[in-house]
């Protein structure tokens, strides 16, 4: 049953056609999966299932006292909580502004501009964009905190134009969106760089011979060819941005007031500052469901080879 020749694609490997009596052997073959299964069940699936239960109770973080089943009360409270809706709106603005528009467009633009550039240019630009991606998120937060500070680098540059202000107070959402674009663009750039290198050069040449302009080539040749990469990239960066915490927490802490309090920050405040554990868990559940939706769409898109 293992007599596959090396030239066959990997999908041919294995023994789906093995006779029934080999079932015990088939199970034994899955033994090496056990440690991973146990860890994932205990620390990943377990808490998530538990969160489904907690979200319907009145558990508080202190843990004392009887836990009562309250049905949909936490979700009802969420529906009528203006601070929660504010956080959802800010999360939406943050995801659309920094990931879908910012990182995605800038990443594609960079990948396009870098094609055919000389090595020095590529190394310098790549190096800077990747450095912003590689630094730990707390350090990225410190960089931006100082950059946007009332007497920071940006205001030193802008003082001649008379635009200097404390950006973290006057425009906190714009600030965290720019910081997240700065931090996350590298990922989209790498995805698009890989996708563009798969576009056959003959197609571009043929389009040039037909007299297509640069923009037409991009619109009618390149973009349709890399559309799967575009959708996959959008799903992945949405997932990464949806639950972003550290960068916003360091830069604004959700403030001033709750002007930049996205749902993860609101969830943190409710669960760990106000000890509203069940309410926080209900919010975590909402985030998980939204994340699960995007993750499922992504899965459908990439399809495992059959």
């Amino acid at each position: 049953m293992t007599a596959t020749t090396p030239t066959l694609p990997p999908a041919v490997r294995g023994d789906t056609s093995a006779p029934r009596r080999d079932r015990g052997r088939g199970l034994r073959r899955l033994v090496p999966l056990l440690p991973a299964l146990v860890l994932l069940a205990l620390f990943f699936a377990g808490p998530m299932l538990w969160s489904v239960y907690t979200a319907f109770t009145d558990a508080a973080l202190s843990g004392s006292g009887a836990v009562e089943f309250v049905g949909l009360a936490n979700f009802d409270r969420m529906l009528h909580d203006p601070a929660f809706w504010n956080s959802i709106l800010l999360t939406l603005i943050f995801v659309v502004g920094s990931a879908v528009i910012g990182q995605n467009t800038l990443g594609l633009l960079l990948a396009l501009l870098m094609r055919g550039r000389n090595r020095v240019t590529r190394n310098v630009v790549n190096g800077l964009v990747l450095a912003a991606w590689a630094v730990p998120e707390t350090v990225a937060g410190f960089c931006w905190y100082a950059f946007l500070h009332r007497t920071g680098t940006l205001n030193e540059l802008l003082q001649h134009v008379g635009l200097s202000q404390n950006w973290l107070y006057t425009a906190p959402m714009v600030a965290v969106i720019f910081a997240n674009v700065w931090r996350g663009t590298a990922f989209s750039m790498l995805v698009y760089d890989a996708a563009l290198s798969d576009v056959p050069p003959e197609l571009m040449e043929a389009a040039s011979i037909d007299g297509a302009s640069g923009w037409q080539k991009l619109r009618y040749v390149t973009l349709p060819l890399i559309r799967r990469s575009i959708v996959s990239n959008l799903m992945l960066i949405t997932l990464q941005t949806l639950a972003a915490f550290g960068l916003i927490f360091v830069m604004t802490g959700g403030g001033p007031g709750n002007a930049s309090q996205t749902t993860p920050l609101y969830m943190y405040e409710q669960s760990f500052k106000f000890y509203e554990l069940s309410y926080g868990t209900a919010m975590a559940l909402v985030l998980l469901v939204v994340g699960a939706l995007f993750s499922a769409i992504y899965l459908r898109l990439i399809r495992l080879e059959d």
Binding site: F43, A243, F245, M267
Partner: peptide, 11 residues
């Protein structure tokens, strides 16, 4: 794809 931040409250 699941957001780890959201898993942290139940954990």
């Amino acid at each position: 794809g699941l957001p780890i931040t959201a898993v942290m409250v139940p954990v």
